[in-house]
Amino acid sequence: MRPSRTTQMVLFLALCAFTVVNLTPIIWAFMTSIKQPVDAFSVPPKLIFTPTFEFHYQVWVEKEFWRFLINSAVIAISTVCISVPIGTMAAFALSRMRGGGSRGILFGLLAMRMFPHILLAIPFFVLAQWLSLIDTYPMMIMALVAINQPFTIWMMRSFFMDVPLELDEAARIDGCNLWQVFYQVALPVVRPGLWITSLFSLLLAYNEFLFALVLTGPNTKTLPVAIAEYGAEDLNYWSLSAAAAIGIMLPIVLFMMALQRHLVRGLAFGAVKG
């Protein structure tokens, strides 16, 4: 019973409309970033104007935001590289454990995610200060890895839950030890899920603001902090924020496009089951 062509078209157009509405704020922000403030915030809005890339140039070249992009990239990629492997290991264990212990741990992890982050900022700073690690990559990365763990573990656990236990048992009978069961049997099955988890971990680390504000400094400042420094007060700052905010999205978009095949496969494999 294949759906008819008209139904398909209607569905397609409806989804397109939804997408367009969803993208409007981003498109509008992009237009703001290529207008002079006098045009950007005029009433009624100007749709015809002479575009200027002045603000993009200012942000990336004059204000050297590419430095912060490097910091962001180093921090986000390192975070993913540490967070996802250790989270995956923990997730594997938690998906294979019997008894109340694992459930207790899982809920403990959630509790960490529920606590308002603004209250962690001060203790984090005190800790970093005590370790003399303010404004260093390791501190920021460790903080993000820790913050990331609950999500990574929960998500990866749901993928592992879908790997039948019989597979483990068969491997055990073949003489695999626990590590080999994990690494050679279970992990290849959940590989598509790894991409999705990595994407979300990357997003979290790349966009994190509060801890970055408190823990980084001139040497390790990340893009979100650099953008937030141009809050409001002067209208030029808005145009700069818009330009920077559009620029900061590009690496993630490219990453997603490059990985789309994997992501879709990960999604189709789906099974984000709890």
């Binding site: 939804f18 997408t19 969803n22 993208l23 704020p25 981003i26 509008w28 922000a29 997003l203 966009n207 603001f209 893009l223 979100p224 953008i227 937030a228 808005w238 924020s241 818009a242 920077a244 905010a245 900061i248 999205m249 993630i252 978009v253 997603m256």
Partner: peptide, 15 residues
């Protein structure tokens, strides 16, 4: 459709 989710939260509100 996924794009709004990757906008940095600090600026998303400004948008």
């Amino acid at each position: 459709m996924f794009l709004p989710h990757i906008v940095t939260p600090v600026v998303a509100a400004l948008f």
